[in-house]
C-alpha cells in the first residue's frame, strides 16, 4: 500500500471533517440546513487572498487569520440575526431556501469584490518537508490533519465540559424543554451560527494548504455537507468516520478509476450509506417531520 494514498485520504478527510462540523453544529441547535456555508467559506478564502500578500511574514499571516476568524464569527451572527431568526416558525423548507438565498447574496458580494479571482494563499512553512516511509511529506500535508484533530477534539471538550457547550447539547436534545429550564435559545442559536461560520474560515485555510482559492470552493464545501449527512446530521461522533470514509472513497476513485468521477463520489457514498442507514452512521432517528 502506497503511503501517499493514506496521506491524501487523511488530508482530504481533515478538510471534509471541519467543513462538515460547520453544518452539524448549526443543524444540532437550530435544525436548519445551512446552505449559506459555502458562501462564507468562499468569501473567507477571497479575503485571505487579498489581505495576505505573497511576501507576508508569518506574524502577518497569523494576525490576518485571527481577524478573519473573528469576521467569520460576526458574519455567522449577522446571518442568524438578520435572516434566520425572522424565519422562526416558518416551514423548514422556507428556512433552507432562506440559507440558499443567503448563499447567493454572499456569492454576489464575492463576485462584486473579486470577480472570479483565484489564487494561492501563501502559507508560512511551505518549504518544509521530510522524507517519511519513502514519500516526500511536506509540513503543509501534516498541518491540516493536526489542525482538524485539534478542532474536533476542542469542540468535543467544549460540548462536554463548558457551560455553553452543555446548554447547546440541551438545546439539541429538546429545544422546548431547554427553553423551559431557562436556557436562552436565541443566544445558543447565535453562538452555533458564529462557531459554524468561524469553522468555515478554518476550513478555507485547510483546503488552501492543498490547492487554490477559487469559485470551486463552493463545490468543495457542499462535499463537506455530504460528509455531515453520512455521519448523521446531528451527530459529532459519526463525523470522523464519515469524513474518513468519504475521503478514502474519493481518493481511491480519483487515483485508480477516473479523475472526473471524483466530484460525484461523495454523493454516491452518501446515497449508499443513507440507503443502509437512513439517519447516517450515528445520527439519531428523528420524528417524522415534513421538510
Amino acid at each position: 500500500m502506497d503511503f501517499s494514498i493514506i496521506l491524501d485520504a487523511l488530508k482530504l478527510a481533515s478538510v471534509y471533517g471541519v467543513l462538515a462540523l460547520g453544518f452539524v453544529i448549526v443543524y444540532r441547535t437550530s435544525r436548519v440546513l445551512n446552505l449559506a456555508q459555502p458562501g462564507v467559506v468562499l468569501l473567507a478564502g477571497l479575503m485571505a487572498l487579498t489581505f495576505i500578500p505573497r511576501d507576508a511574514t508569518p506574524t502577518r499571516f497569523w494576525l490576518t487569520a485571527l481577524v478573519l476568524l473573528a469576521l467569520g464569527a460576526l458574519a455567522g451572527l449577522a446571518l442568524y440575526a438578520l435572516l434566520l431568526r425572522p424565519m422562526a416558525g416558518q416551514s423548514h423548507i422556507s428556512q433552507v431556501l432562506m440559507t440558499l438565498a443567503a448563499l447567493f447574496l454572499l456569492q454576489a458580494i464575492s463576485e462584486a469584490g473579486w470577480r472570479g479571482e483565484s489564487g494561492f494563499i501563501p502559507m508560512p512553512g511551505r518549504q518544509v518537508a521530510w522524507e517519511l516511509f519513502g514519500t516526500n511529506v511536506r509540513l503543509l500535508d501534516v498541518a491540516p490533519i493536526v489542525v482538524a484533530a485539534v478542532v474536533v477534539a476542542g469542540l468535543a471538550l467544549f460540548y462536554r465540559y463548558s457551560r455553553s457547550g452543555r446548554q447547546m447539547r440541551a438545546v439539541a436534545e429538546n429545544p422546548a424543554l431547554a427553553a423551559r429550564r431557562g436556557i436562552n435559545i436565541e443566544k445558543i442559536g447565535a453562538m452555533a451560527w458564529a462557531i459554524a461560520a468561524a469553522l468555515g474560515v478554518v476550513a478555507v485555510f485547510l483546503t488552501s494548504t492543498q490547492g487554490s482559492v477559487s469559485l470551486l470552493l463552493v463545490g468543495t464545501t457542499l462535499k463537506g455537507f455530504t460528509v455531515a449527512l453520512v455521519g448523521g446530521l446531528d451527530s459529532l461522533s459519526g463525523l470522523v468516520p464519515a469524513a474518513l470514509l468519504v475521503a478514502a472513497a474519493e481518493v481511491v476513485t480519483v487515483r485508480f478509476i477516473d479523475q472526473q468521477l471524483g466530484e460525484a463520489v461523495p454523493y454516491v457514498v452518501l446515497l449508499v450509506v443513507l440507503l443502509v442507514k437512513p439517519w447516517g452512521l450515528a445520527g439519531t432517528r428523528e420524528e417524522l417531520d415534513r421538510v
Binding site: L33, A264, G280
Partner: peptide, 21 residues
Amino acid sequence: LRIRGFYLGITTLAVQYVIIA
C-alpha cells in the same frame, strides 16, 4: 422507500452531481 424528511431532499443533491458526472 427508506429515507424521509431532510435527508431525502439531500439525496437529490446527489442525483444532481451523479447525473452531471
